[in-house]
Design a binder for these strands. Structure first.
Length: 636
RNA sequence: GCCCACGUAGCUCAGUAGGUAGAGCACUUCCUUGGUAAGGAAGAGGUUCACCGGUUCGAUCCCGGUCGUGGGCUCCA
């Protein structure tokens, strides 16, 4: 080993004895906000401030407020929680505890699940640990030595983890009496944890596999300051107000009732109208883009599902019924009927691409634990289309769909992420077809320069797919649009077209949805707008409200005129004060409040108060209708 | 499906060493005719506290089970 190393640090190149730590180096210069520095990087590799440096290079500091710094802070918080848990419950086994967005979690194998009271105790103990400013000590050990250590301490999960590590040495971190296997780096001492809160306990399978033992996971939030933690908690509170389940009730959009069945949505008039508006928009957008509307039956013979592979691969999610001693499967997807329509006559290459669109109602038997408001239900309507095209047309079709999705998401103002999912274990079709399909999707994403992640093994059983995900109020991701390439079903159903050369050839099929499930999309949409729908989507666009019953006749006339001009308007002529009516309309997030009183009648005008504004503008009915129409047209 | 928590009037929630249940809003009626975020009064409303069992003289409250909801895990539009 060299006796000295050259370190570039803050515009200075200096020589230090080998084994100098970042702390030593920082001490040689004046650094501001010393207490914000949680770790360092040597040549881009994160290290503790106390790690002896053995190589020359560039030293950078990691401050707590940076992405890397937060990650370290939260990861160290997880260690502190594990320490507290081990002190309070020595019999638990520790497993893993990473940092996550806004905080951290740690999974424990326990004999008895944690109670809310346990959480309080753990949190108190953590506060004591933080107060005592215990240093995080790093130790390098050989694998064998580490395995022996964890075997002795009974930490069998750690032994298993080390078994999977492919390195000579591993590192262990200790604070107080607690030692954990960890790559690091960590904060210098537990006192750096300024603000944290244990949020919830949950079950989680070891290694995320449901065949494994269920562990107890504790989630915590951690931030560099109390203010930031409070801001985070306030944000969660605000997000809860946007919850579509809460708004669905408040705005009387829908209900999901125990007595009707879990995962079955009952749409009330306002919600059904919202659905209608979105579906109407969808039909028009599809017709514009060369799709044809089709409708398939709700149940199809079981043999057909056997032929398609659904019976083999998707049966556990399907409902079945028997009519006249014939077995039927209730459709969980819409593709079968679409293929039958294609097959109903001979197709020429001139006919392709054929694009069948259906707002198809499907049933899927989702596991009870996954149901979630409108976002995960058992009966839903997909804005589903199946495109049959030649292999040469495939790429263009995929590009068109991605652009379609982009347009629509733009109209609703959504941000989204895209993912490419590849072949799962349970699947049908040849490797060659899967490669072709996967490459077609990849190429389209590349051609459009779309950023995307890869989800290995997450494709549908019949083909790979591009998924577009939207986030709900609590920033949980939900898959909405999806584009799936399929060479297998056309094969299984013997779909063909006659090509230029007179030969019968196999078309390629694309399964795709844009909004995904109307239910899920509306759930996310409600949260996106926090219930304040833009004018074109608002189930009730305006409320005419009277000051007193002297104004009822004028108000009724006004309502009728607006009805005639396609304004979705209600009349509030109740025996209530105007303040009461305004308040209620505000709470219902009605876009326009139209006040009529003596003044308005005298001038033959209306007092227009727009959602989000406190002032009232006087206008004629014509002026209002014209402003209204413009706003609807521009989908503001 | 698995882990934890929860399940009281239409809604939001209170409640009790275990002694047959309460508020606000909403609803109905009456008074009030009031100009931009809640006018006033009265009344009705729970087959009695999700359901089924058990303990007990007696259970909404304790115990067990079922169903559902919420938060996660797994899975997925």
């Amino acid at each position: 080993m060299k006796s000295s190393i050259e370190i570039q640090f803050q515009d200075q190149l200096n020589s230090y004895p080998a084994g100098a730590t970042p702390n030593d180096i920082i001490d040689t210069v004046s650094v501001k906000n010393r207490s914000d520095i949680v770790a360092a990087e040597i040549n881009g590799r994160p290290v503790d401030l106390t790690t002896p440096l053995t190589e020359s290079g560039t030293l950078d500091l990691i401050v707590v407020d940076s992405a890397k710094g937060l990650d370290i802070l939260r990861h160290s918080s997880a260690h502190i929680m594990a320490q507290a848990v081990k002190e309070l419950f020595p019999e638990v086994k520790v497993t893993i505890g990473p940092s996550i967005e806004d905080g951290f979690y740690y999974d424990f194998d326990v004999f008895r699940p944690f109670t809310p009271e346990d959480l309080e105790k753990i949190e108190s103990r953590m506060k004591e640990i933080v107060k005592s400013r215990l240093p995080f000590r790093r130790k390098v050990m050989s694998r064998d030595e580490a395995i022996r250590y964890f075997e002795e301490t009974g930490e069998t999960y750690k032994v298993e983890i080390i078994g999977a590590i492919d390195a000579e040495d591993v590192t262990l971190y200790s604070q107080g009496e607690f030692t954990d296997l960890c790559r690091g780096p960590h904060i210098p001492n537990s006192g750096f944890v300024k603000a944290f809160k244990l949020m919830k306990v949950a079950g989680a399978y070891w290694r995320g596999d449901e065949r494994n033992r269920m562990l107890q996971r504790i989630y915590g939030a951690a931030f560099p300051s109390k203010e930031k933690l409070k801001k985070h908690l306030d944000l969660i509170e605000e997000a809860k107000k946007r919850d579509h389940r809460k708004l669905g009730k408040e705005l009387d959009l829908f209900s999901i009732l125990d007595e009707a069945g879990p995962g079955m949505v009952i749409w009330h008039p306002k919600g059904a109208l919202l659905r209608y508006l979105v579906e109407d928009f969808e039909r028009k957008e599809h017709l514009k883009r060369g799709y044809e509307l089709v409708v398939g039956p709700q149940i199809l013979k079981r043999e057909l599902w056997e032929k398609s592979g659904h019976f083999e691969n998707y049966r556990e999610n399907m409902y079945f019924t028997n009519v006249d001693e014939i077995d039927y499967g209730i459709k969980p997807m819409n593709c079968l009927a679409h293929m039958l329509i294609y097959k109903s006559r001979i197709r020429s290459y001139r006919d392709l691409p054929i694009r069948y669109f259906e707002l198809g109602v499907v049933h899927r038997h989702e596991k009870s634990g996954v149901l979630h408001g409108l976002l995960r239900v058992r009966q839903f309507t997909q804005d589903d289309a199946h495109i049959l095209c030649t292999p040469e047309q495939l790429n263009d079709e995929i590009l068109n769909i991605i652009n379609f999705v982009r347009d629509v998401m733009g109209i609703f103002g959504f941000e989204y992420t895209m993912e490419l999912s590849t072949r799962p274990e349970k699947s049908i079709g040849t490797d060659e077809d899967w490669d072709r399909a996967t490459n077609a999707l990849k190429k389209a994403l590349l051609d459009l320069g779309v950023e995307h992640e890869i989800n290995e093994g997450d494709g549908a059983f019949y083909g790979p797919k591009i998924d577009i995900k939207l986030k709900d109020a609590l920033s949980r991701s939900w898959q909405c649009a999806t584009i799936q390439c399929d060479f297998t079903l056309p094969e299984r159903f013997g779909l063909t077209y006659v090509d230029k050369d007179g030969e019968r050839k196999r078309p390629v099929m694309i399964h795709r949805v844009v909004l995904g499930a109307i239910e899920r999309f509306l759930g996310v949409l409600i949260e996106h707008y926090a219930g304040a729908f833009p004018l074109w989507l608002a189930p009730v666009q305006a409320v005419v409200m009277t000051i007193t019953d002297r104004h009822d006749a004028y108000a009724r006339d006004l309502k009728q005129r607006l009805d005639e001009n396609n304004v979705r308007v209600e009349l509030d002529d109740r025996n209530e004060k105007i303040g009461f009516k305004i308040r209620e309309a505000r709470n219902r997030k009605i876009p326009y409040m139209l006040v009529v009183g003596d003044k308005e009648i005298e001038e033959n005008r209306i007092g227009v108060r727009k959602r989000g504004q406190d002032n009232t503008v006087s206008m004629t009915v014509d002026e209002f209708v014209s402003q209204f129409d413009n706003e609807v047209k521009s989908r503001l």
